[in-house]
Design a protein around this nucleic acid. Structure first.
Length: 321
DNA sequence: GCGTCCAGGTCTACC
DNA sequence: GGTAGACCTGGACGC
């Protein structure tokens, strides 16, 4: 299949816009500049696809196994548009970037589209898994969530369901891994787990009750995460709702909002602080208020300008990390 | 190999 | 509203 994309759309820079591309069910082939994704959206089995950009304005999409039905194809393309932010209008952001010498490179490079998951649920769970830990631990948690609770592409029955509740016969992790083609787990799969399982088998630690509460609220219909991408509420109101999720504080909420297309919050974490100090203060530490004041002139786009500023050096490398 | 220390955000209790 | 301490894991370090 092929998919038309905006003329200034930069596939590779969208893939490497932040760390999500190194977490399953994403998998990057740096040699061929291909992004692999396992989608588990809608009815039917999860579908693995490979995406690359052979030339400007076009994406080439290859399904991994078997043939897809027409509704399956449609869902897949919709999923890709969501993940790559193809329908997001960044013209106002680019216009503003062109007015600042410091950010002229942004529109020239086609930067600014932040890779996201097909579902808000996946983005929120992953964001909680980035809090208060190293990136290595985030990778461990997300790898294990997919390997132990996600459905495998083309597999009709999920026998792994049997050991979710305390079973000592957990399949060794080496049998899985991102290459194994597991999708991100559905909310039901996480909601069915015990807290002990999430703590010990997923290595979620104290985050386990947060993940459990989130999934169970979603399954019971008490929390409509997916509506966050389309809701017409003021960003401040949405920020409050996002922050009401246990385990989601200012850093996580600000970043979740960015993945919802709202850039009014900076979402400062330790890496951002360190990088800001290096770029703007010769490594000298300041406080967060100084950082916030620095990006205040960028108004509702300040969160995206902040991220572009901190990751500018990534664009000097074909493969930044 | 073992023990200790520390970094990393969020929550809760307390002032 | 602000602050201290607990939460948990994994990496770095010293022995």
């Amino acid at each position: 299949m092929t998919l038309s994309v905006p003329h200034n759309f930069n596939f590779w820079r969208t893939v490497y816009s932040h760390g999500w591309c190194s977490l399953p069910p994403f998998l990057v082939d740096k040699e061929t500049r291909t992004l692999r994704i396992v989608f588990d959206v809608g009815p039917g089995d999860p579908a693995g696809v490979e995406v690359c950009q052979p030339r400007r304005g076009i994406l080439a999409i290859k399904a991994q196994r078997g043939t897809l039905s027409s509704p399956g194809k449609r869902r897949l393309l919709e999923g890709l548009r969501t993940v790559l932010r193809l329908d997001e209008d960044l013209s106002e952001f680019y216009a503003q970037a062109r007015r600042h010498g410091r950010f002229r490179w942004v529109s020239r490079m086609g930067a600014g589209r932040l890779l996201r998951a097909p579902t808000v649920f996946e983005d929120v769970v992953k964001m909680i898994c980035t809090t208060n830990c190293s990136w290595a631990l985030t990778e461990t948690m997300v790898n294990r969530l997919c390997a132990k609770l996600g459905r495998s592409e083309g597999v009709h029955t999920d026998t792994r369901h049997d050991f979710r509740l305390h079973s000592p016969h957990v399949r060794p992790l080496k049998d899985f891994g991102p290459q194994a083609g597991f999708a991100f787990p559905q909310p039901e799969a996480v909601a069915d787990c015990s807290e002990k399982f999430l703590r010990k088998e997923i290595h979620a630690g104290y985050r386990a009750p947060y993940l459990l509460q989130l999934s169970r609220r979603v399954v019971k219909g008490q929390l409509d995460l997916e509506s966050w991408r389309t809701v017409d509420a003021p960003t401040e109101e949405l920020y409050k709702e996002v922050s009401s999720v246990k385990g989601v504080g200012p850093y996580a909420a600000g970043n979740i909002l960015k993945l919802l297309g709202r850039y009014d919050y900076l979402a400062i974490d330790s890496w951002c602080r360190k990088t800001f100090f290096e770029i703007h203060k010769n490594g000298r530490r300041t406080n967060d208020r100084i950082i916030e004041r620095f990006y205040e002139p960028f108004g509702k786009w300040k969160g995206l300008f902040f991220w572009m500023d901190l990751t500018k050096s990534w664009y000097e490398h074909d493969v930044p990390f």
